[in-house]
């Protein structure tokens, strides 16, 4: 794990991907400053957000939540090709000839990527949170929950992209799999509405079942907004998505242990 973690960190720094995250964060800061200025002149009335207190805390966290979602999306794109690249002909020989089981190698790589990119996402979110607090004068609550959910969301995405990347050896197919997962979860959110148009109970139950099995990263992101705006959140999307991620990882290890390079 130590070696793979160092390697993942060195790889991230070499790719200079950190500059893209920095650029996105700077854009986020500019949006915060611009939004703050616009709010101060809202309807010709001068508003002092600093005196509004908790009234703006919720919307601020919703904004930061959307920002974190963009960062996770960016991380999915940035990491999709890492495992296929690690297992290209000539490089796979190097890693597979080391005294580590294939299962450990795959899980170490997945956790290393997760850790490195989670730190990057966390750092960017913290910067935005601090800047927003400093500009507006209100520090949004439930930051720990926001960070935890987005970091777990990244782990769920990684379980998909690494499995597909390992099986196909393709960066592009790995990203496509993530996109298909995203589209399907958008559709499955409306499983009850879709089910009401279907007479066949088996098909209706299958769609409903697929909804509970399929990862729900969009709903995980929505959990933060529910928590800060409504005071509570339904945790089922997180639990079921983590079970899906665990199943995908077990499948990935099973296939990886049997794959010839």
């Amino acid at each position: 794990m130590r070696g793979i973690l160092h390697d993942s960190l060195a790889e991230m720094l070499d790719r200079k991907i950190i500059w893209i995250y920095a650029a996105v964060t700077v854009i986020g800061i500019l949006i915060v400053i611009a939004a703050n200025s616009a709010a101060l002149n809202f309807n010709g009335q001068e508003l002092d957000l600093k005196t509004m207190g908790e009234e703006v805390a919720g919307p601020i966290m919703v904004g930061i939540n959307r920002f974190a979602y963009v960062l996770v999306f960016l991380s999915v794109l940035a990491t999709a090709g890492i495992f296929p690249k690690m297992m290209v002909k000539g490089r796979a020989d190097y890693f597979l000839s080391k005294p580590i089981s294939r299962g450990s190698l795959l899980i170490s790589k997945m956790l290393s990527i997760w850790l490195v990119y989670s730190l990057l996402v966390t750092a960017c979110v913290l910067v935005i949170w601090v800047v927003t607090g400093a500009v507006v004068g209100v520090f949004g609550a439930k930051l720990w929950m926001l960070l935890m959910l987005h970091v777990l969301s990244l782990l769920i995405w990684l379980s998909i992209t690494i499995t597909i990347g390992m099986v196909t050896g393709s960066n592009a197919l790995s990203i496509m799999a993530a996109f298909v997962t995203w589209v399907l979860q958008q559709i499955l959110v409306f499983h009850e509405e879709i089910g009401s148009f279907i007479d066949n109970s088996i098909l209706r139950n299958a769609i409903s079942g697929l909804y509970y099995i399929w990862p729900k990263t969009i709903q995980i992101s929505d959990m933060v907004e529910s928590a800060v705006m409504k005071g509570g959140a339904e945790w089922m999307p997180l639990y079921s998505s983590l079970i899906f991620a665990a199943a995908m990882t077990v499948l990935a290890v099973f296939i990886f242990r049997r794959k010839d390079y």
Partner: peptide
């Protein structure tokens, strides 16, 4: 092991 046509991690 020194593999033939190796491609060591070139970010290192």
């Amino acid at each position: 092991y020194l593999p033939e046509n190796h491609r060591f991690p070139d970010h290192l």
